[in-house]
Design a protein around this nucleic acid. Structure first.
Ligand SMILES: [Zn+2]
Ligand SMILES: [Zn+2]
Ligand SMILES: [Zn+2]
Ligand SMILES: [Zn+2]
Ligand SMILES: [Zn+2]
Ligand SMILES: [Zn+2]
Length: 1102
DNA sequence: GAGTTTGAAACT
DNA sequence: CAGTTTCAAACTC
């Protein structure tokens, strides 16, 4: 906000970024009070840097900021109102992260103002010539306004903004997070487009995306996306600066906003140029309406990579190369352009997608996808822009993508949203895909992604239909900065291809990732897909699409070191080195990432994105009825996604790996929905046969059917309702009220439930981020797994070996949050013995071949080794209470998070927004998500506070993975197969290690099972890990609970056991929540990243 | 497909 | 919060 307000928006933003990066503190504030954060922002080096980069920006930015602010501010509240809470998060996250990112960069295409009204349309304004900047605006008119400012020199930044302030506000307002983003966006937009834009925006719905492209002095291409976050901006700038200087660091920002109906989604990726290079990826999405409550979902994902910059660069370079392949020429310039072009190509989709990618070099590509033709325009513009940029040979490239989605956003807060956005785009996407050309590799993947996208799209579509009234926006930003070092080409490629390029990069990687993802990360969520996909295995590879999203992320990651981080986060996927990046990406891709990717992709290579989704979908193969899915999903998706996502999405996930931390990702939560979405997407994307298959699978998977007799499908007893979807024809329910026509009633019911339990609609599965550690191994193992059930189970007789057990059903191992007796969950026992679990798993598998197979496929078993550590954790976990407290990890959230988180839940649980911010933000979100779930929501809230602090710390945790997804598979029916499988790893270690334990191991259950929603929790553990104390406490808690814990005899446990409370009292890490504590612990771990985070957390706890 | 089991959700 | 009831899925036959 302030950022926007800040006189020198751009600079400020940069400052933010800087602030963000380094001074996490700022972030913290941000979260809680998004606006507040601004101050820091200004300062941030970024801003200065940015400013230096492009004078233009500054001026523009300011204005934009102002507007933005205005817009933002106003909008936010509204947003909050409903689901809103989430929005806050985003904002928080965003803010935190955002800090004013773009600062200098921001471009505003003037046109916006005028056209804005049209915004809805979308468009990319690539302003054709970015350089031109505004001029293009007119072109863009449509929705998005894009400004391009040229930034300073070398680093050219492209900022894209999508602002839909109005959208945000108006429509949705839905998710707070979104809002925040939106706000920022708006601000920027406003700034850019000026008020007018705002006005337009306000109308809401309209989607407009503003693209800014700023070109560095040379290239003068900068594109900033506002959408998201300042953070990003800030981040990017920093990166740029940093990168530019030395090694080209890569920063990626993605923000996607989709407004469809009311929903907005923002995704931004930002890498931090911080010393440790970090990449942030933020994604936020919000819907004005949730299917139910009309929530919004937004999430931010931030990923920071610490890896050596070099690596990042390398990757980035690689990425670049890839992109280059696609579009060498453009490369230098703004990838965004490329992206746009793609988009345009693609289609002209209505949707706009902006993708900003900033590499260290500062490459940003913006993609905007809007449903409207805008895209095409955008493309053109972009292309032109690109050209210009390229010409400029900007080192940096930024791409942003905006996508507007209609209603659906909800569904996929993150991924879904993206997907949705994409979905809206779907058509376009397909087109896009087509356009994607470049990405051959992608193709396959892309296809998958597309498929996924399609599904989502479908949902979206449905939702849209349903919720036409509402405007959901889809806004996606994606920005990547490529280090200067890297040849312009890279940047160019990146940009040009934007998403495509990214994807392309990714693709290769992605493929891996995809695979990995599918297997691991996504796998988790999507396990289904993976498994199936895997089998597809080979096929998969080709189809790494999943990568798509992942790609984006990945790309981002790739671009920066982020990838690595990501990977880690993802865990499963992470296995791959690159994959690590990939992994992250994957996660993202799958889950939210997919969204992101999609968004980004959309613009660029929607396909890719889709592909990611698709993959998952495929898993779901089972799905039979795409239609059904659609229906349910459609409505649901939004809902579900919304709900799920929302919550999740609301949570912004930040992944930042400070150096090591890895990032995490958030993923999306909605596994289930996502799946469906994916399916839909798939369908769309798939375009052809494969898609259909996938679709079916997806559909089937995603679709849930209920047989409610007495609940009218308005209670959580109803799976459909619980999933946030409408009942479909397939349902055998009686007296069903859960139909689109009863939206009001549904909303009310949802609210009531939420009032009771804010997390009620949050994804059931949370990823704990395992550690970010990145241990490739883990990841490799696939297991990223740190997924766990948000509430845990209370199984008494089923031994957690049947679907009666929610954990098992979700394909995740039991965690400390579980109170099960005699747990033998094959995915992982509370105890934590992953290994055991695995073994068991095998056994179980024997019992249920499927599982095993899947697991085996996944290669999960490998993961085991990791487990060891797990045990401790597990032990801890054992105690439910403890668990909760422990769980908190996820809670961690940084202060920001807390704030944001709370809102979400509070606001509208159902429609939480997912957002991913940098680590901190991510964590927050994740935490939020995860947290919420875990503890009671209530606690959650409280915790949130505490948590929030924590979040900061956890980047690791953050990782969310996108697992989610899924559900379909499980649903499918089989009882036994928990889909997941994998898993196992579980916690054990993490816990043992520290609080994190969870993340560590846990399996990552994909969640094929039904649950669908998976949220990644931040590793609390990670944080915990860092803090011994925390750990202890956790342990204690666990001990309390648990017997199992006992088992684990790990010394730690003992320690831990002592006092949960201690922990609490200690306050050190954990925070206490209602009874539960969270150990935010983690502070330690993250600390680096975020000072604030730590502080916050600690504080909170204390 | 009917009936039983199960554990979450809802309610008190 | 705990205890009880209600509910619908999961499971069994
Ligand atoms: Zn029902
Ligand atoms: Zn139903
Ligand atoms: Zn029904
Ligand atoms: Zn259980
Ligand atoms: Zn359990
Ligand atoms: Zn269990």
């Amino acid at each position: 906000m302030r950022v926007g307000t800040s006189p020198q928006p751009e600079e400020d933003r940069l400052g933010f970024g800087a602030a963000m990066d380094s001074p996490e503190a700022t972030k913290v504030p941000v979260s809680s009070s998004a606006s507040v954060s601004s101050p820091p922002v200004k300062d941030s080096p970024f801003s200065s840097y940015a400013s230096s980069l492009s004078p233009i920006q500054c001026s523009n930015s300011r204005q934009g900021l102002r507007v933005y602010r205005d817009l933002n501010f106003p909008s936010p509240e509204p947003v909050f109102t409903s689901p809103h809470i989430t929005l806050p998060r985003k904002s928080d996250t965003v803010r935190s992260s955002l800090p004013l990112p773009l600062v200098g960069v921001e471009k505003f295409s003037v046109q916006d103002s005028n056209d804005r009204t049209t915004l809805p349309g979308n468009m990319l304004r690539s302003s054709a010539s970015m350089a031109q900047l505004n001029p293009s605006n007119n072109e863009f008119e449509g929705n998005p306004t894009s400004k391009h400012e040229t930034c300073g020199a070398s680093s050219s930044c492209v900022d894209v903004f999508l602002s839909d302030p109005s959208d945000v506000c108006d429509n949705s307002s839905a998710s707070p997070v979104c809002v925040s983003l939106d706000q920022e966006m708006h601000e920027r937009i406003q700034g850019i487009s000026t008020n007018s834009s705002e006005n337009q925006i306000e109308p809401c719905r309209e989607k407009f995306a503003c693209l800014k492209s700023v070109t560095a002095p040379s290239a003068s291409d900068l594109v900033d996306e506002f959408i998201a976050d300042p953070v990003e901006h800030s981040g990017t700038p920093d990166l740029q600066s940093k990168q530019g200087a030395v090694v080209p660091q890569v920063v990626c920002n993605d923000s996607v906003c989709s407004q469809e109906m009311n929903t907005q989604i923002d995704v931004s990726l930002v890498e931090k140029s911080l010393p440790s290079q970090t990449t942030e990826y933020m994604i936020s999405s919000s819907k004005a309406k949730d299917s139910f409550s009309g929530d919004e979902a937004s999430f931010l994902v931030n990923i920071s990579l610490d890896d050596g910059e070099d690596k990042i660069f390398d990757e980035a370079n690689e990425a670049v190369e890839v992109s280059l392949h696609e579009q060498p020429a453009s490369i230098t310039n703004n990838s965004s352009i490329d992206c746009h072009s793609f988009e345009a190509e693609a289609g002209a989709l209505d949707q706009q997608t902006k993708v900003n990618i900033v590499d260290q070099n500062n490459v940003s590509s913006v993609l905007n996808d809007k449903a409207n033709n805008d895209i095409s325009l955008a493309k053109t513009t972009i292309a032109s822009y690109f050209c210009h940029n390229v010409r400029d040979a900007r080192p940096q490239i930024s791409a942003q993508g905006l996508g507007e989605l209609n209603s659906t956003p909800q569904c996929l807060p993150e991924s879904l949203q993206n997907a949705q956005a994409v979905g809206d785009l779907d058509v376009s996407r397909e087109k896009v895909l087509l356009s994607a050309d470049n990405q051959i590799p992608f193709d396959e993947d892309s296809t998958q992604h597309q498929r996924g996208m399609r599904k989502r799209l479908q949902f979206e579509a449905v939702e849209k239909q349903k919720t036409n009234a509402e405007c959901s926006r889809f806004y996606t930003k994606f920005s990547c900065d490529i280090s200067c070092a890297e040849p312009p080409q890279t940047s160019v490629d990146m940009d040009t291809s934007d998403s495509c390029h990214l994807e392309s990069f990714e693709i290769p990687r992605m493929k891996k990732d995809c695979q990995a993802v599918s297997q691991s990360g996504p796998c988790k969520l999507i396990a289904k897909v993976d498994s199936s996909g895997q089998k597809k295995g080979g096929s998969f590879v080709p189809g790494p699409r999943p990568c798509g999203i992942g790609l984006h992320l990945n790309s981002i990651g790739n671009i920066g070191n982020n990838c690595c981080t990501v990977v880690q986060l993802l865990g499963k996927d992470s296995c791959m080195e690159d994959s690590s990046f990939l992994g992250d990406d994957d996660k993202l891709s799958q889950g939210s990432s997919s969204e992101l990717a999609s968004t980004g992709l959309i613009g660029k290579n929607p396909v890719t994105l889709t592909a990611n989704f698709e993959k998952p979908i495929p898993h779901s193969v089972g799905e039979d009825t795409a239609d059904k899915h659609l229906e349910n999903h459609v409505m649901e998706p939004p809902l579900s996604s919304v709900s799920f996502q929302t919550p999740q999405s609301e949570k912004a996930i930040q992944c930042s790996m400070q150096s090591k931390l890895t990032d995490r990702y958030v993923t999306p939560c909605n596994l289930k929905r996502p799946l469906p979405v994916d399916d839909s997407k798939v369908n769309l994307s798939s375009q052809s046969s494969p898609r259909k298959k996938r679709r079916k699978a997806v559909d089937t998977e995603s679709q849930k059917r209920c047989s409610c007799k007495r609940s009218k499908c308005l209670k959580l007893y109803c799976d459909c309702f619980a999933a946030g979807t409408f009942c479909s024809e397939l349902c055998g329910c009686l007296q069903c009220v859960n139909k689109p026509e009863n939206e009001d009633t549904i909303r009310e019911a949802k609210q009531q439930i939420e009032s009771r339990n804010p997390l009620a609609f949050a994804p059931k599965v949370v990823l704990c981020a395992s550690d970010p550690p990145k241990d490739n191994e883990e990841n490799m193992g696939k297991t990223p797994s740190s997924a766990r059930h948000k509430r845990g189970c209370n199984c008494k007789k089923s031994l957690c070996l049947k679907k009666y057990c929610e954990c098992y059903q979700a394909g995740v191992g039991c965690s400390f949050g579980c109170r099960c007796e005699g747990c033998k969950n094959t995915f992982g026992r509370r105890d934590g013995c992953i290994e055991i679990i695995e073994i068991e798993h095998k056994k179980s598998s024997e019992q249920s071949s499927e599982r095993d197979s899947s697991a085996e496929k996944l290669g999960i078993s490998e993961m085991k080794s990791r487990l060891t550590p797990l045990t401790p954790l597990i032990q801890v976990a054992s105690g439910v209470d403890v668990a909760k407290s422990l769980v908190p990890c996820s809670y961690y959230t940084s202060p920001e998070t807390s704030a944001s988180a709370l809102p979400y839940y509070e606001g509208s649980p159902g429609s939480p927004v997912n957002s991913i911010n940098k680590c901190a933000s991510i964590k927050d979100r994740d935490d939020a998500l995860s947290i919420i779930p875990y503890d009671s929501e209530l606690d959650f809230d409280i915790k949130v506070d505490t948590l929030s602090p924590g979040w900061d710390g956890f980047p690791d945790i953050c990782n969310l993975s996108p697992l989610a997804i899924t559900d379909g598979a499980p649903a499918s029916s089989k009882t036994k197969e928990p889909k997941v499988l994998q898993t196992r790893l579980f916690q054990g270690n993490s816990l043992a290690l520290g609080s994190l334990g969870w993340r560590c191991s846990p399996v990552t259950p994909l969640q094929q099972f039904g649950e669908s929603k998976i949220v990644v929790e931040p590793d609390t553990g990670s944080g915990l890990n860092k803090n011994p104390e925390d750990d202890t406490p956790e342990i204690l808690k666990e001990t309390c609970l648990p017997m199992e814990s006992v088992k684990t005899s790990s010394p730690k446990q003992k320690r831990i056991s002592p006092p949960k409370r201690l922990m609490e009292s200690r306050s050190s890490s954990s925070t206490i929540r209602n009874g539960r504590k969270f150990i935010l612990q983690s502070v330690p771990s993250f600390p680096p990243l975020t000072p604030y985070s730590n502080n916050s957390r600690d504080r909170g706890t204390t």
